[in-house]
Protein backbone atom coordinates (compact mmCIF):
# COMPACT_ATOMS: atom_id res chain seq x y z
CA UNK A 1 0.00 0.00 0.00
CA UNK A 2 3.07 2.20 0.25
CA UNK A 3 2.91 3.92 -3.12
CA UNK A 4 -0.84 4.50 -2.75
CA UNK A 5 -0.58 6.27 0.55
CA UNK A 6 1.58 9.14 -0.55
CA UNK A 7 -0.83 10.96 -2.90
CA UNK A 8 -3.62 10.53 -0.33
CA UNK A 9 -1.44 12.07 2.33
CA UNK A 10 -0.59 14.94 0.00
CA UNK A 11 -4.28 15.59 -0.67
CA UNK A 12 -4.97 15.72 3.03
CA UNK A 13 -2.00 17.99 3.70
CA UNK A 14 -2.90 20.37 0.89
CA UNK A 15 -6.47 20.40 2.15
CA UNK A 16 -5.33 21.43 5.62
CA UNK A 17 -2.97 24.01 4.15
CA UNK A 18 -5.84 25.48 2.17
CA UNK A 19 -7.98 25.62 5.28
CA UNK A 20 -5.20 27.34 7.24
CA UNK A 21 -4.76 29.95 4.49
CA UNK A 22 -8.51 30.55 4.44
CA UNK A 23 -8.37 30.92 8.20
CA UNK A 24 -5.61 33.52 7.93
CA UNK A 25 -7.72 35.54 5.49
CA UNK A 26 -10.63 35.44 7.91
CA UNK A 27 -8.34 36.57 10.72
CA UNK A 28 -7.16 39.46 8.56
CA UNK A 29 -10.73 40.56 8.03
CA UNK A 30 -11.46 40.21 11.74
CA UNK A 31 -8.35 42.22 12.59
CA UNK A 32 -9.51 45.03 10.30
CA UNK A 33 -12.90 45.14 12.02
CA UNK A 34 -11.15 45.11 15.39
CA UNK A 35 -8.86 47.91 14.33
CA UNK A 36 -11.79 50.06 13.21
CA UNK A 37 -13.53 49.31 16.46
CA UNK A 38 -10.45 50.26 18.36
CA UNK A 39 -9.76 53.44 16.43
CA UNK A 40 -13.17 54.85 15.59
CA UNK A 41 -15.54 54.05 18.45
CA UNK A 42 -14.97 56.96 20.75
CA UNK A 43 -11.64 58.78 21.03
CA UNK A 44 -9.05 56.47 22.59
CA UNK A 45 -7.06 59.52 23.66
CA UNK A 46 -9.94 60.66 25.77
CA UNK A 47 -10.04 57.24 27.36
CA UNK A 48 -6.31 57.11 27.94
CA UNK A 49 -5.60 60.64 29.14
CA UNK A 50 -8.79 61.13 31.09
CA UNK A 51 -11.53 63.70 30.82
CA UNK A 52 -9.63 66.42 32.61
CA UNK A 53 -6.33 66.27 30.72
CA UNK A 54 -5.06 69.43 29.08
CA UNK A 55 -4.60 69.75 25.34
CA UNK A 56 -0.84 69.26 25.73
CA UNK A 57 -1.26 66.13 27.76
CA UNK A 58 -3.63 64.79 25.13
CA UNK A 59 -1.12 65.48 22.36
CA UNK A 60 1.53 63.69 24.38
CA UNK A 61 -0.67 60.64 24.77
CA UNK A 62 -1.64 60.79 21.11
CA UNK A 63 2.01 60.77 20.14
CA UNK A 64 3.05 58.18 22.69
CA UNK A 65 0.45 55.67 21.39
CA UNK A 66 1.18 56.53 17.74
CA UNK A 67 -2.33 57.82 17.22
CA UNK A 68 -1.08 60.83 15.27
CA UNK A 69 0.20 58.67 12.41
CA UNK A 70 -1.76 57.99 9.18
CA UNK A 71 -4.45 55.29 9.40
CA UNK A 72 -2.72 52.68 7.21
CA UNK A 73 0.51 52.97 9.21
CA UNK A 74 -1.48 52.50 12.39
CA UNK A 75 -3.20 49.41 10.96
CA UNK A 76 0.11 47.88 9.91
CA UNK A 77 1.51 48.55 13.35
CA UNK A 78 -1.62 47.03 14.88
CA UNK A 79 -1.18 43.93 12.71
CA UNK A 80 2.49 43.71 13.60
CA UNK A 81 1.62 43.87 17.26
CA UNK A 82 -1.13 41.31 16.85
CA UNK A 83 1.29 38.89 15.19
CA UNK A 84 3.55 39.14 18.23
CA UNK A 85 0.59 38.83 20.56
CA UNK A 86 0.85 42.45 21.64
CA UNK A 87 -2.51 44.12 21.80
CA UNK A 88 -1.56 46.84 24.21
CA UNK A 89 -2.41 47.26 27.85
CA UNK A 90 -5.80 47.33 29.47
CA UNK A 91 -6.94 50.92 29.92
CA UNK A 92 -8.28 50.04 33.33
CA UNK A 93 -5.68 47.81 34.96
CA UNK A 94 -2.65 48.82 32.84
CA UNK A 95 -1.80 45.10 32.56
CA UNK A 96 -1.06 43.45 29.21
CA UNK A 97 -4.44 42.67 27.56
CA UNK A 98 -3.52 39.22 26.23
CA UNK A 99 -2.11 38.14 29.60
CA UNK A 100 -5.28 39.30 31.35
CA UNK A 101 -7.44 37.24 29.02
CA UNK A 102 -5.20 34.18 28.97
CA UNK A 103 -5.31 34.13 32.75
CA UNK A 104 -9.07 33.77 32.50
CA UNK A 105 -8.93 31.27 29.63
CA UNK A 106 -8.65 28.02 31.66
CA UNK A 107 -11.87 28.75 33.56
CA UNK A 108 -13.84 29.29 30.34
CA UNK A 109 -12.21 26.38 28.56
CA UNK A 110 -12.99 23.95 31.38
CA UNK A 111 -16.56 25.15 31.58
CA UNK A 112 -17.06 24.75 27.84
CA UNK A 113 -15.34 21.35 27.87
CA UNK A 114 -17.53 19.95 30.63
CA UNK A 115 -20.62 21.44 28.98
CA UNK A 116 -19.84 19.89 25.60
CA UNK A 117 -19.03 16.52 27.16
CA UNK A 118 -22.35 16.56 29.00
CA UNK A 119 -24.32 17.54 25.94
CA UNK A 120 -22.53 15.01 23.75
CA UNK A 121 -22.76 12.02 26.08
CA UNK A 122 -26.24 12.67 27.42
CA UNK A 123 -27.58 14.03 24.14
CA UNK A 124 -26.38 11.08 22.05
CA UNK A 125 -27.54 8.61 24.70
CA UNK A 126 -31.00 10.11 24.88
CA UNK A 127 -31.13 10.35 21.09
CA UNK A 128 -30.52 6.59 20.84
CA UNK A 129 -33.19 5.83 23.45
CA UNK A 130 -35.70 8.05 21.68
CA UNK A 131 -34.99 6.49 18.29
CA UNK A 132 -35.25 2.90 19.52
CA UNK A 133 -38.45 3.31 21.54
CA UNK A 134 -40.12 6.22 19.74
CA UNK A 135 -43.51 5.55 21.28
CA UNK A 136 -42.35 4.90 24.85
CA UNK A 137 -43.34 7.13 27.72
CA UNK A 138 -39.73 8.11 28.44
CA UNK A 139 -39.18 9.06 24.80
CA UNK A 140 -42.20 11.33 24.76
CA UNK A 141 -40.99 13.10 27.90
CA UNK A 142 -37.47 13.45 26.46
CA UNK A 143 -38.75 14.81 23.17
CA UNK A 144 -40.91 17.43 24.85
CA UNK A 145 -38.02 18.21 27.20
CA UNK A 146 -35.73 18.79 24.24
CA UNK A 147 -38.12 21.43 22.94
CA UNK A 148 -37.79 23.19 26.29
CA UNK A 149 -34.01 22.86 26.10
CA UNK A 150 -33.99 24.53 22.71
CA UNK A 151 -36.47 27.26 23.49
CA UNK A 152 -35.73 28.32 27.08
CA UNK A 153 -33.07 31.06 27.13
CA UNK A 154 -29.84 30.29 28.97
CA UNK A 155 -30.31 32.86 31.73
CA UNK A 156 -33.65 31.36 32.69
CA UNK A 157 -32.24 27.81 32.73
CA UNK A 158 -29.43 29.07 34.93
CA UNK A 159 -31.71 30.84 37.38
CA UNK A 160 -34.08 27.85 37.58
CA UNK A 161 -31.17 25.50 38.26
CA UNK A 162 -29.84 27.80 40.97
CA UNK A 163 -33.28 27.98 42.57
CA UNK A 164 -33.70 24.23 42.50
CA UNK A 165 -30.22 22.98 43.40
CA UNK A 166 -28.81 25.80 45.49
CA UNK A 167 -31.78 27.45 47.16
CA UNK A 168 -34.26 24.61 47.77
CA UNK A 169 -32.11 21.49 47.80
CA UNK A 170 -28.92 23.23 48.94
CA UNK A 171 -26.73 20.58 47.34
CA UNK A 172 -24.67 22.61 44.87
CA UNK A 173 -22.98 25.99 45.10
CA UNK A 174 -24.54 28.78 43.03
CA UNK A 175 -21.52 30.89 42.12
CA UNK A 176 -17.77 31.00 41.71
CA UNK A 177 -15.28 28.40 40.66
CA UNK A 178 -14.44 26.86 44.03
CA UNK A 179 -11.00 25.50 44.91
CA UNK A 180 -8.49 25.39 42.09
CA UNK A 181 -5.09 23.80 41.58
CA UNK A 182 -2.23 25.39 39.64
CA UNK A 183 -0.73 23.03 37.05
CA UNK A 184 2.13 24.93 35.42
CA UNK A 185 0.51 27.82 33.55
CA UNK A 186 -2.93 26.25 33.83
CA UNK A 187 -5.22 26.81 36.82
CA UNK A 188 -7.71 23.96 36.95
CA UNK A 189 -10.85 23.44 38.98
CA UNK A 190 -11.45 19.92 37.73
CA UNK A 191 -9.09 18.25 40.19
CA UNK A 192 -10.76 19.28 43.42
CA UNK A 193 -14.11 18.06 44.70
CA UNK A 194 -15.12 21.62 45.47
CA UNK A 195 -14.17 22.71 41.96
CA UNK A 196 -16.18 19.87 40.43
CA UNK A 197 -19.21 20.77 42.54
CA UNK A 198 -18.96 24.35 41.37
CA UNK A 199 -18.78 23.48 37.68
CA UNK A 200 -21.91 21.29 37.59
CA UNK A 201 -24.60 23.98 37.50
CA UNK A 202 -22.94 26.38 35.05
CA UNK A 203 -21.95 23.47 32.78
CA UNK A 204 -25.51 22.12 32.81
CA UNK A 205 -26.84 25.57 32.00
CA UNK A 206 -24.39 26.05 29.18
CA UNK A 207 -25.07 22.56 27.79
CA UNK A 208 -28.87 22.63 27.88
CA UNK A 209 -29.32 23.96 24.37
CA UNK A 210 -26.57 21.84 22.77
CA UNK A 211 -27.86 18.78 24.58
CA UNK A 212 -31.27 19.15 23.02
CA UNK A 213 -29.71 19.76 19.60
CA UNK A 214 -27.48 16.68 19.85
CA UNK A 215 -30.36 14.52 20.97
CA UNK A 216 -32.53 15.57 18.05
CA UNK A 217 -29.62 15.20 15.65
CA UNK A 218 -28.85 11.70 16.92
CA UNK A 219 -32.50 10.71 16.69
CA UNK A 220 -32.80 11.96 13.12
CA UNK A 221 -29.55 10.22 12.17
CA UNK A 222 -30.57 6.94 13.79
CA UNK A 223 -33.92 6.93 12.04
CA UNK A 224 -32.20 7.39 8.71
CA UNK A 225 -29.36 4.94 9.25
CA UNK A 226 -31.51 2.15 10.73
CA UNK A 227 -33.27 1.92 7.35
CA UNK A 228 -30.01 1.49 5.44
CA UNK A 229 -29.13 -1.72 3.63
CA UNK A 230 -25.97 -2.26 5.66
CA UNK A 231 -28.05 -2.38 8.83
CA UNK A 232 -30.13 -5.12 7.21
CA UNK A 233 -26.84 -6.89 6.48
CA UNK A 234 -25.80 -6.49 10.12
CA UNK A 235 -29.06 -8.07 11.33
CA UNK A 236 -28.68 -10.83 8.73
CA UNK A 237 -25.24 -11.64 10.15
CA UNK A 238 -26.90 -12.57 13.42
CA UNK A 239 -25.50 -9.66 15.43
CA UNK A 240 -27.16 -8.66 18.69
CA UNK A 241 -29.24 -5.46 18.81
CA UNK A 242 -26.52 -3.83 20.92
CA UNK A 243 -23.88 -4.53 18.25
CA UNK A 244 -26.13 -3.45 15.40
CA UNK A 245 -27.18 -0.21 17.07
CA UNK A 246 -24.08 0.82 19.01
CA UNK A 247 -21.51 -0.32 16.48
CA UNK A 248 -22.92 -0.42 12.97
CA UNK A 249 -25.51 2.34 13.20
CA UNK A 250 -23.99 4.71 15.75
CA UNK A 251 -20.63 5.00 14.01
CA UNK A 252 -22.42 6.35 10.95
CA UNK A 253 -24.72 8.58 12.97
CA UNK A 254 -21.82 10.11 14.89
CA UNK A 255 -20.16 11.64 11.85
CA UNK A 256 -22.47 14.68 11.67
CA UNK A 257 -22.99 14.76 15.45
CA UNK A 258 -19.27 15.03 16.17
CA UNK A 259 -18.99 17.79 13.60
CA UNK A 260 -21.72 19.79 15.29
CA UNK A 261 -20.27 19.08 18.72
CA UNK A 262 -16.86 20.32 17.63
CA UNK A 263 -18.21 23.46 16.05
CA UNK A 264 -20.38 24.28 19.04
CA UNK A 265 -17.42 23.77 21.36
CA UNK A 266 -15.82 26.82 19.80
CA UNK A 267 -19.04 28.73 20.21
CA UNK A 268 -19.35 27.72 23.84
CA UNK A 269 -15.86 29.01 24.55
CA UNK A 270 -16.58 32.28 22.80
CA UNK A 271 -20.11 32.93 23.94
CA UNK A 272 -20.43 31.63 27.46
CA UNK A 273 -20.88 35.25 28.56
CA UNK A 274 -24.41 34.93 29.94
CA UNK A 275 -23.72 31.75 31.85
CA UNK A 276 -20.49 33.11 33.30
CA UNK A 277 -22.29 36.21 34.45
CA UNK A 278 -25.10 34.31 36.16
CA UNK A 279 -22.72 32.05 38.03
CA UNK A 280 -20.00 34.68 38.65
CA UNK A 281 -17.67 32.37 36.78
CA UNK A 282 -14.21 33.96 36.59
CA UNK A 283 -13.80 33.31 32.85
CA UNK A 284 -13.21 35.30 29.67
CA UNK A 285 -16.91 35.95 29.08
CA UNK A 286 -17.27 37.60 32.44
CA UNK A 287 -14.18 39.68 31.76
CA UNK A 288 -15.52 40.73 28.37
CA UNK A 289 -18.75 41.97 29.86
CA UNK A 290 -16.90 44.04 32.48
CA UNK A 291 -14.61 45.42 29.80
CA UNK A 292 -17.55 46.44 27.63
CA UNK A 293 -19.00 48.35 30.57
CA UNK A 294 -15.65 50.07 31.07
CA UNK A 295 -15.00 50.56 27.32
CA UNK A 296 -11.70 48.78 27.84
CA UNK A 297 -10.99 48.46 24.13
CA UNK A 298 -7.67 46.57 24.17
CA UNK A 299 -9.35 43.79 26.14
CA UNK A 300 -12.37 43.73 23.82
CA UNK A 301 -10.20 43.66 20.70
CA UNK A 302 -7.92 40.96 22.12
CA UNK A 303 -10.93 38.91 23.11
CA UNK A 304 -12.37 39.07 19.61
CA UNK A 305 -9.05 38.19 17.97
CA UNK A 306 -8.39 35.35 20.39
CA UNK A 307 -11.81 33.75 20.08
CA UNK A 308 -11.62 34.05 16.29
CA UNK A 309 -8.35 32.13 16.40
CA UNK A 310 -9.83 29.51 18.70
CA UNK A 311 -12.90 28.99 16.53
CA UNK A 312 -10.84 28.75 13.35
CA UNK A 313 -8.46 26.31 15.02
CA UNK A 314 -11.33 24.15 16.24
CA UNK A 315 -12.95 24.18 12.80
CA UNK A 316 -9.78 22.82 11.25
CA UNK A 317 -9.54 20.24 14.03
CA UNK A 318 -13.13 19.17 13.37
CA UNK A 319 -12.30 18.76 9.68
CA UNK A 320 -9.48 16.43 10.64
CA UNK A 321 -11.70 14.49 13.03
CA UNK A 322 -14.34 14.22 10.33
CA UNK A 323 -11.76 12.66 8.06
CA UNK A 324 -10.82 10.15 10.76
CA UNK A 325 -14.45 9.13 11.28
CA UNK A 326 -15.41 9.07 7.64
CA UNK A 327 -13.11 6.90 5.50
CA UNK A 328 -14.62 8.30 2.31
CA UNK A 329 -13.30 11.78 3.11
CA UNK A 330 -9.94 10.36 4.09
CA UNK A 331 -9.18 9.05 0.65
CA UNK A 332 -11.09 11.26 -1.75
Amino acid sequence: MGPRERPQFTTMASYILRRVLQGLLVLLAVSFVCFCLFRYTGDPVLMLAGKYATQEEREMVRHAYGLDQPTHIQYIKFLGGALKGEFGKSYVSQVDALDTILERFPATFELALVAILISFAVGVGMGIVVSIWPKGCVSRILMSGSLLGISIPTFLTGILLVMLCSVYLEILPAFGRGDTVQLGPWRTGLLTLDGLKHIILPALTLSSYQLAVMMRLTRAGMREVMGEEYIKTAWAKGLSPAKVILKHALRNVLIPVVTIAGLSFGELIAFSIVTETIFQWPGMGNLLLTSIFETDQPIIVTYIMLTSCIILFINILVDLLYAVLNPKIRYN
Binding site: E228, E229, Y230, K232, T233, A234, H248, R251, N252, I255, L325, N326, P327, K328
Partner: peptide, 11 residues
Protein backbone atom coordinates in the same frame (compact mmCIF):
# COMPACT_ATOMS: atom_id res chain seq x y z
CA UNK B 1 -28.64 -8.42 -1.08
CA UNK B 2 -29.18 -6.66 -4.36
CA UNK B 3 -27.16 -3.52 -3.73
CA UNK B 4 -23.49 -4.28 -3.04
CA UNK B 5 -22.94 -0.50 -2.97
CA UNK B 6 -25.03 -0.02 0.14
CA UNK B 7 -25.11 -3.39 1.83
CA UNK B 8 -21.63 -3.10 3.30
CA UNK B 9 -21.12 -0.63 6.14
CA UNK B 10 -19.15 2.33 4.74
CA UNK B 11 -17.22 3.10 7.94
Amino acid sequence: FQEPMTSLNPV
